[in-house]
């Protein structure tokens, strides 16, 4: 088709050679690769920065800024759950004491996993919980998002003893937390996930709260 473009002009013979065409393709590939490398280098730091900002923004929702004076991302821990999966714990330090921790918990919703970030203070009380990702039915199960409903704020200040073990359930199951009309499975999953997160805190309390001092002998140096 585009042969016609060149009809009027004199065609140098070398254009028809395989070598020219292979060189052309190879040359374009090299230029393309060089451009991509340059683009990657130019944007890498900025993109990394944006990712960190995103993470900090969601951590900031469950750990109030007044509780800590450290960089939440710098003082994270890696722990192993009972089922063998690893969990990254972000710690809010006030001086050298751990004021609060935050980590991700996951519930089994109606349509797949519900990922939440859960903030807990050093006495085992929920500072806040926020949904990071879910696939629940729009209009029914998505009331777990704080943007749509303040249901999730009911967990603030709760702990394993408050309410009692039986109370950590939706009202339909005899617990203290509201379910949504038309959706029971979603709030059930969130209640369970948060309870599981508190139990994790309880089981690892010593490791979560004590190790800051050991790891960070000199706050300045660690920065």
């Amino acid at each position: 088709m585009s042969l016609e473009v060149h009809k009027g002009r004199a065609h140098p013979v070398y254009r028809e050679r395989v070598g020219y065409q292979a060189g052309l393709l190879g040359g374009f590939s090299m230029v393309a690769a060089a451009l991509l490398v340059m683009g990657n280098i130019a944007t890498r730091d900025a993109i990394e920065q944006r990712r960190a900002e995103d993470l900090l923004a969601s951590l900031g929702q469950v750990i109030p800024a007044r509780l800590h004076d450290n960089d939440l991302l710098a003082d994270s821990l890696m722990l192993t759950r009972e089922d063998g999966s690893e969990v990254v714990v972000y710690r809010a330090l006030s001086g050298l004491d751990v004021a609060a921790v935050a980590y991700q918990v996951t519930g089994q919703g109606y349509a797949g996993d519900i990922d939440l970030i859960l903030g807990i203070d050093n006495r085992g009380r929920v500072l806040g919980a926020r949904v990071l990702a879910h696939a629940e039915t729009p209009g029914l199960g998505d009331k777990i998002e704080v943007a749509r409903d303040d249901w999730i704020l009911d967990f603030d200040g709760r702990s394993l003893g408050d309410p009692t073990d039986a109370g950590w359930a939706v009202k339909k199951d005899g617990g203290e937390f509201d379910q949504f009309s038309g959706a029971t499975i979603t709030p059930r999953a969130v209640v369970r996930a948060i309870k599981g997160g508190l139990e994790f805190f309880d089981a690892h309390r010593d490791g979560l709260l004590a190790s800051a001092v050991i790891q960070r002998t000199d706050p300045e140096e660690a920065k």
């Binding site: 039915t137 729009p138 209009g139 029914l140 009309s181 038309g182």
Partner: peptide
């Protein structure tokens, strides 16, 4: 799919 609440009450 549009009104799951009304359609399942």
């Amino acid at each position: 799919i549009s009104f799951p609440l009304e359609m399942t009450s």
